[in-house]
Design a binder for these strands. Sequence first.
DNA 1: GAAATTTCGGAACACGTTTTCCTTGACGAA
DNA 2: TTCGTCAAGGAAAACGTGTTCCGAAATTTC
Lengths: 332, 332
Amino acid sequence: MASRSTRRPTIRDVASVAGVSASTVSKALKGNYSLRDSTVERVRQAADELGFIPDSRGRALASGRSFTVGLITTDSSGRFSIPIMLGAEDALSAGEMALVLCDTRDDPLREQHYLKALVSLRVDGIIVTGRRVEPREPIDVPIPVVYAFSPSTDPADTSVVVDDHAGAAAAVRHLHTLSRKRIAHVTGPESHLSARVRAAATQEAASTTFAGPPLYGEWTERWGRLAVDVLLRDHPEVDAITCGSDQIARGVCDRLRELGRSVPGDIAVTGYDNWSVMALASRPPLTTVDMQLEELGRRTAKLLLDAIAGSPRPGPQKLPTRLITRESTLGT
Amino acid sequence: MASRSTRRPTIRDVASVAGVSASTVSKALKGNYSLRDSTVERVRQAADELGFIPDSRGRALASGRSFTVGLITTDSSGRFSIPIMLGAEDALSAGEMALVLCDTRDDPLREQHYLKALVSLRVDGIIVTGRRVEPREPIDVPIPVVYAFSPSTDPADTSVVVDDHAGAAAAVRHLHTLSRKRIAHVTGPESHLSARVRAAATQEAASTTFAGPPLYGEWTERWGRLAVDVLLRDHPEVDAITCGSDQIARGVCDRLRELGRSVPGDIAVTGYDNWSVMALASRPPLTTVDMQLEELGRRTAKLLLDAIAGSPRPGPQKLPTRLITRESTLGT
DNA sequence: GAAATTTCGGAACACGTTTTCCTTGACGAA
DNA sequence: TTCGTCAAGGAAAACGTGTTCCGAAATTTC
């Protein structure tokens, strides 16, 4: 029919086709009301026939919920935010919720703009995430909020973060099983919390087998290559290097190869992030720590759904990492 | 007041504070109605005082629009979709529109699910994007749709794509200005349209200065390294290599360096994508073709806004690329 | 067979806006 | 003074759904 293409069918259209009232249609389609089976079936058929898809705007208004959550990220281009987004989106779509994306680009003005927009949308909840693990100022809205990766500075807020300490320690334990006794650590800038946490955990786990203080620098391959020279000069006895990122580790491997040192024969190397384009392209491929960010996103979304449903779990939560072993420690 | 925290203020609350009717508030806040300045001011103040933020669900229902658009991507993890998303989100948020993210993960079932969800949300429009440049089946919804990066197979649909042909040709022209006369091309699988298009454009632009047929392989560094060996064996006279991706180009540079060939002294190298983690980390940094995907996303969003406003621009559109010159062709 | 109970479905209102129509009062012109 | 015009703002209807109440019919119980 022409009318069908010109306007989407409403619940009333379904009602008149099924020969019932609008409220009956609503009940029939939602289930768990006392309706005759035959009535429910008739309504279902009418809805199918018309291709009826309920208008969530009406539903939102009537139910007081919007079935929508906002995701505020300070930078969605970063490789950390993306898997988190994906995981969250996955868990939310399974819960029949839509995800509204807001990238603030680290601009407080944009953040304000987006917060207003999300309040206007009457989202049922908000996920806040960022690129750094440093705690961030909480946002001020009368809506459930869960922080992912970058926790809130308020310990009463729900935050889901990576257990970086355990992750770095796992790399060291792995090297211990391989009988490495002189472990060095090369990582990013000391101003970065993640670098400091991983360095501290490494030092603690290695304790007696630690070769020299952690080398702080940049999150780049160049720094990895440079650090090798420094390390071999000051601690030539080193037989393993744990790195604060896969980029650094790749640089380390490259330089070691250039110097004729075999990896892992002479020196074992581990990375951090399991960033496939680095970890797999490295020669040799890197043993590394996977932060399981997609799982973190999924978990965040579930916590948010819980909070929306009325059972918030306040406080920070650490999610475990996973050690991925490859040739850079296991040899060939 | 307690009441303020317990329930968000509605337009009626504002009305009663300002001493006017609800409809007057609506008119005052939207402007361009014949209202006394003093009234408008009074309403503004009342709204400010209450922290009134209009409920877009009510607005959506009354106005027939939802001020929301959906973004369907077949994989949002890929490095192509992300800049497109970002650009689109940027342009849309400037137009006071929200972006609902849907990642189908290349699963037709998920795509169906999301389409239904977007129709249910009554989004004002949909952006469809993907990871490949191959045309894709159009989606079937009675809503404006614009395709980005992966065009629709239907030429009547609005599609925004990269001008890969011009991009590859620009790289060759750049090499010609540098007096390179023996240009080879190393790229991804021949089954990929983007590889074929870039290869054809390269061949056409180089014509008399083309060294051997294009080398098809994989989009990996490993293939880049391998290809160098093949190339130097079959065409030792080569003085420039254009690559189908930055990953390949990085592999090419690495292998050339290992063989003691200087880049660009002996052989100039160009990449494709301007993927900074590859292009900048390469030794030397890569001259490469930037697809300007963020701009593409922005343009897509604007076209969608036009279509929503009632002025669609049907048909495919090619967006220009930009050549980024760095040391891999310019020397130091 | 009458009364009590259960089952089924409809009427009406609520949700928060926008928008159309209408009323009121002020002002200027004849 | 009276009529017409116009600015200012209110009343009410829409938008599409969910939900509460209530009445009618069907079923059970004595």
